[in-house]
Each structure stands twice: as C-alpha cells, then as structure tokens.
Amino acid sequence: MQQTIIDRIDQVAENVVSLVLRGARGPLAPWEPGAHIDLALPNWLTRQYSLCGDPADRDVYRVAIRYERLSRGGSEYVHRFLRQGRTLDVSLPRNHFPLLPAPEYLFLAGGIGITPILPMLRAAVEAEIPASLVYLGRSAETMPFVGELRALAGERVRTVATEQQDRPDLAALGSALAPGALVYCCGPSPLVASAEAAFPAGRFHSERFQPEDKSFAPNTPFEVECARSGRTYQVPSDESLLDTLVHAGRPVASGCREGVCGSCELTVLAGEPEHRDDIGAPAGRMYACVSRALTPRLVVDL
C-alpha cells in the first residue's frame, strides 16, 4: 500500500467529486491510462476507482467518485465525511483496461465512465494520434471534466446530454473509422452492451463498473490447497473461495467482490479454475471472489 494525503477535494459535476491524493512519502508508483487503484476508506471499506489524472505527474493521483443513491457505503462516505488533509492508504495501480497501440482511436464514455477514458484521450493527443470522444450524460451538469476534455481535444470531443439529445448512431461512428482503429468504451451496462454489438470484437475494448449478467452451472464443493502453508480447505457450494480462505485465516486482498477489480487475484498451480470474472483472468490466475473450480481440487500459491 502507498500512503497519501488528500490534497484537494473538488466538486466537478452534480454529485461528483474528485480527490487529488498526494504521496505522503514522495513520488507515487507509476501508472498508465486505464489503471485503477484500491482506496482504503476510514470506514473499513475498500473501493476501486480509475485514475483520471496525468500519468506524467508522479506527485499525485486523481480519482473521481459519483454519489450513488443506493451506495453500499463507499461513495456516501467519500461525499459526506472525507476532508482535505486526511491520510488514505491506496494500492499500487492495476490495469485490466490498457490502451493498445493503434493508428486511430474512438473513445465512448457514459457518465463517471469518463474517468479511465480521460487519460487515454490525453495520451493519444500527446502522441499526435487521431482520436475522438463521444461522451454521454443525463445532462451537462452531471458530466465531469467537460471543460478539461475540450481544452485537450477541442472539437474532437462531442458531448451528448441524453435528456435533450438523441443518442449517437454507433454503427455510423464505426463506418467512419479508419482500418485498424480501436474503440474504447466505459460507462453504464446499456451503453457498453450497445457498443459491443456495434463494433467488431477485435477492435472493441471495454470496462464495466458492474459485472455482466452471466449464467453458470450450479455451485459444487471443491478442495483448495494452499501450497506455501501445505494446508487444505473445503470450499462449500454456498461459499466463495475468497470467503473460505478468509475464514480459515488465510487473508486475501479484496475489493469489489464481483469479479471486476482484480484485487483478489490468485496464482493457480494445479487444477482448473472456472472463471466467472469480467476481467478475463490470464493463464494460471483466478479471482477468488467469484471464480470456482472445474476440477475437484485446486492448488493456489498462498
């Protein structure tokens, strides 16, 4: 973990604040567009937020948090109780949404989904790669960073206030793209689903804040061996691997518990995991909060 101090809290849109977090012990760990951090809140909750500042500035991280009416305690605490000068622990950055090289980019963002997209647009502009952004929000007042985006990319930024304007024709946007162009999308599930249907899979990259609805076979019990300790535990059908390990005194970092943040990643040494995450676990890895086993036994590096 890295220790930071809240340098500034800014109201950047209706029900959205940004936190500027300064490293308490010098420069913070480097990051690239698309990365996020775990923020350890003083109310014992850990939440994940995309970094939306400038990767070249190692002195501070910036995140933005929208107040959710049905908050599980994270956004409500940030908006109601956090104050400038407070010390907060944050994780090293993780990136499951990297910006890949391309001759052109189309960025699509909905609401707070602008947070990982903003540094991507900045990177493209600085590299002089053609890039455009379509940014949707309920109204202009609910859309953070519009002024910053327009200062960065001018007319290449198109904002759509959906209460007054029609939603963009995604197929038409796709037909205007150059060969090899990549599309990056982040926002509410309906936007991501529509974009996913409109663009070729090989050229489309997205990040979701909530897991996609999926169906799996009924849970079955399995056994997990922790290779470093030599201990073996039974994972019942009504409990996750993460909870079994935590209850057994083998703590694993966790955040979203929905398979979207990656904080509970484990290395699998033997057996075949059943991947239920929304990230796309790399070979030999699994996310303990949602994923289970296709074999009767797993061996993990723990």
Rank of each mutant, 00 (worst) to 15 (best):
S263M: 15
L39C: 13
S189C: 00
R228M: 00
Y233D: 00
V252H: 02
N219F: 10
P273G: 04
A195V: 02
S229M: 03
V134M: 03
T87C: 11
I117S: 10
G147H: 12
F199P: 10
F97H: 04
A131H: 05
D59H: 14
F216A: 01
E76W: 07
G113L: 03
L173G: 07
A288Q: 01
T4A: 05
T267H: 07
R257C: 10
L302D: 03
H36E: 05
D10K: 03
L92T: 05
E148S: 11
A24P: 07
P119N: 04
E32Y: 12
A227T: 01
R292T: 09
G85W: 03
D238W: 14
A201S: 13
H275W: 07
A171Y: 05
E32N: 14
P168Y: 07
G111C: 08
S263E: 13
R47Q: 09
S237E: 15
L242K: 00
G284M: 05
T115Y: 13
R257F: 11
P168D: 03
P103T: 03
P116V: 03
S175A: 14
A281K: 00
R150E: 12
P218V: 00
H96G: 08
A288K: 01
L191V: 04
H79R: 04
R158G: 02
L269F: 05
Q48L: 08
E155T: 14
R292W: 10
V224K: 06
L241A: 03
L121G: 12
L100K: 15
V78W: 13
S71V: 03
R150Y: 02
T232E: 01
E32K: 15
G34T: 10
F209G: 11
P30T: 07
E207L: 13
L133D: 13
G180F: 13
E272K: 14
V224A: 11
H79P: 08
T115W: 14
C256L: 09
A201N: 01
I9N: 03
V63C: 04
L191H: 01
L88R: 02
Y67E: 15
Q3A: 08
E212M: 05
A248Y: 12
I37H: 06
V146P: 10
V125P: 12
S194Q: 15
L70P: 11
L108I: 02
R276C: 04
G180I: 09
N15R: 15
V299A: 00
S291A: 04
Y135V: 01
P103W: 11
R94D: 11
V246F: 00
Y135R: 03
A193P: 05
P27Q: 02
A193W: 00
H96Q: 14
